[in-house]
């Protein structure tokens, strides 16, 4: 799972590094706010433990075995910000001292292994808690789903980075199928182990589990929303490196010859602003515009549907 040097090209690895530094900064600030000075000791201990838990191999079947990634588990037990910090520290230690994963790919590894798994796992367990209630059984089922999907989404994130800046010209479809099917199997094992660990935790020390003691989930979700907005804005930097060939929908449209785009006037055709000649800047500007329109729409929707007390 750890990407070595020379697999992803320079611009994409640099951008992934920027994204991970930014989100690490945000989550350090947030966890400092709710734990204070104590944060240092507990975060260090927990990342040592997650390092050791990653050495547990569980059999998947057919003679292969996978090991825990721990992103979803850390987020469920320690909360989103502290969990992301702990897993990222583990990745940094592995790269610097145990030669696992390349130095130039450190940003990509942090993004895939800690940030994507953490955010996806937190999102799933939080929505699960809202839909199915706070009983222990529903939390355990939710943690199984969160653990499984976080591993699968982390492999999907790798495939996206590969598609944007892979140095190898193997077809993306075959890479996608190989990565996602193998990580689906690993994800089932990860989900099971996450669910069992949470099960014992809820029986023995339910006061330590973040997801079950966290009553004001509204406050925390706003924080999550900020992180998501930051991530999407920083993904903007990646867009100009994307492939210029038409995407799937457009190519299907061309094949069946209902591509009528010459007749319709669109303001932002092919993601570029009018009146700006520089390709790079215009693409970035139009993406920022799109993201901010989305954010405004989502906020409007949330405001309209909010019940007045």
């Amino acid at each position: 799972m750890h990407v070595p040097d020379g697999f992803i090209n320079a611009p994409v690895s640099a951008t992934a590094g920027l994204i991970s530094v930014g989100s690490l900064w945000v989550s350090t600030k947030a966890s400092n706010k709710f734990l204070g000075d104590k944060f240092i000791a507990i975060a260090g201990m927990m990342s040592a433990l997650i390092f050791v838990l990653q050495m547990i191999n569980f059999p998947i079947g057919a003679g292969t075995s996978g090991h825990l990634l721990g992103g979803a588990l850390a987020v469920i037990i320690l909360g989103p910000s502290l969990g992301i910090v702990c897993v990222s520290i583990v990745v940094i230690i592995q790269a610097l001292i145990f030669a696992d994963g390349g130095l130039s790919a450190l940003g990509i590894n942090i993004l895939n292994i800690s940030i994507v798994t953490g955010l996806i796992g937190w999102f799933i367990i939080n929505t699960w808690k809202k839909i199915f209630g706070e009983k222990n059984f529903s939390l355990i089922l939710g943690s199984f789903v969160a653990g499984m999907l976080s591993v699968v989404m982390s492999s999907v994130a790798f495939v996206i980075e590969y598609a944007l800046g892979g140095t190898v010209s193997v077809a993306i479809g075959s890479v996608f199928i190989a990565m996602v099917t193998s990580h689906f199997l690993i994800g089932i094992g990860e989900g099971l182990i996450t669910a069992f660990i949470l099960n014992l935790f809820l029986k023995v020390r339910s006061d330590l589990v973040f997801i079950s003691i966290n009553k004001e989930s509204r406050h925390k979700t706003i924080h999550l929303k900020r992180i998501l907005i930051f991530l999407s804005l920083s993904l903007v930097l990646l867009v100009p490196f994307a492939s210029t060939s038409p995407d799937g929908l457009e190519s299907i449209a061309k094949e069946f010859s209902f591509d009528n785009s010459e007749n319709t006037a669109i303001l932002l055709e092919d993601y570029s602003m009018p009146l700006i000649s520089n390709n790079f800047i215009s693409i970035i500007l139009s993406t920022i515009l799109g993201v901010s329109i989305l954010v405004v729409l989502i906020n409007l929707y949330l405001n309209l549907t909010r019940k007045n007390p």
Binding site: A41, I42, M46, L53, F58, P59, G61, F196, V204
Partner: peptide, 30 residues
């Protein structure tokens, strides 16, 4: 002996016992 998926339960219990001890130890060390 670590063979099937049904054995992952005991592995997970070992891991969570370590997590609980680690958290308590962190508070003491602090």
């Amino acid at each position: 002996n670590n063979k099937g998926l049904s054995d992952s339960r005991s592995l997970a219990y070992a891991g969570s016992a370590m997590l609980i001890r680690g958290f308590e130890r962190g508070e003491k060390v602090y």
